[in-house]
């Protein structure tokens, strides 16, 4: 197997992992009505990665963990606020300020952080895939274990509380899984396009599906098809695969807008 084949196989695996995250975390972002959490988490992750690169001068520490930590912090702050989207917006601004500040401290390494902004589906390493797969399995397990609780608090938080569900705790857990999925997907498509790849498939599926189960299924299919088409186009033309995939899923969303409620 030549090196090109290896990169393509890794890209195919990454697209499947991306589709799983889009199906689960993307759908719950729509159900829980926290659309900006994905964008907020992605930019918080940039700040976290930048901080850990700064700290690399003193301790051996993986910047990916910094990204995960900061993304989860934004989820926690959103879960504690009455107006989650306002808290996410402010956290977004705060973490971007931090990101720029940290990047200015590590000018010679800044390219590593900016690389996270764009990602590259066709340049993923075995280590990247292993990390994405590990976190996706963890997320899948959490969603399967608590799907009833997550749906209940998304639909009717008061009713869930009276039914004995610890709404505050499950809210933190649900928002943290969305933030974690964002960091996982960022590896493949970058911080800018991750919003399109997680949100647009689920938003489109939510408009056309007749049940919650079908939203999960359709959003996964939309992300999968867009991911593969993006990769195919990038193999023929000199364009970024994630940009083509993001264009596809957003176009699918705009098409579903034509459908009457």
């Amino acid at each position: 197997m030549n090196m090109l084949d290896e990169f393509i196989i890794r890209a195919i695996v990454a697209i499947f992992l991306l589709a799983i995250n889009s199906s689960l975390a993307g759908s719950f972002t729509i159900f829980r009505d926290v659309p900006f959490l994905v964008a907020g988490s992605a930019h918080a992750a940039l700040a976290g990665a930048a901080l850990f690169i700064v700290l690399e001068g003193w301790v051996a520490i993986n910047p990916f963990l910094g990204a995960v930590l900061f993304a989860i912090l934004i989820a926690v702050s959103a879960s504690r606020a009455k107006q989650a989207n306002v808290a996410i917006g402010i956290s977004f601004a705060f973490s971007m300020s931090l990101a720029v500040l940290f990047i200015s401290l590590i000018k010679e390494q800044a390219a590593r952080v900016w690389g996270l902004l764009f990602g590259d589906l066709l340049l993923l390493t075995d280590r990247d895939i292993l990390m994405m797969a590990t976190f996706t399995v963890i997320l899948l397990t959490i969603y399967l274990a608590f799907i009833r609780e997550f749906l209940f608090i998304s639909f009717d938080a008061e009713g869930a509380e009276v039914s004995g569900i610890n709404v505050a705790w499950f809210n933190v857990l649900l928002l943290s899984t969305i933030s974690l999925a964002t960091v996982v997907a960022m590896k493949a498509v970058g911080a800018i396009l991750v919003y399109a790849m997680l949100m647009a498939p689920a938003a489109a599926a939510n408009r056309v599906a007749g049940s919650v189960g079908r939203v999960f299924l359709l959003s996964g299919i939309f992300a999968l098809v867009a991911g593969f088409l993006g990769m195919l186009v990038a193999m023929i033309l000199p364009v970024a695969p994630s940009a083509v995939a993001a264009l596809m899923v957003t176009t699918i969303y705009f098409i579903t807008l034509k459908r009457r409620e």
Partner: peptide
């Protein structure tokens, strides 16, 4: 207080 924006 009930969400009505997803197809439950």
């Amino acid at each position: 207080t009930i969400a009505k924006h997803f197809p439950i």
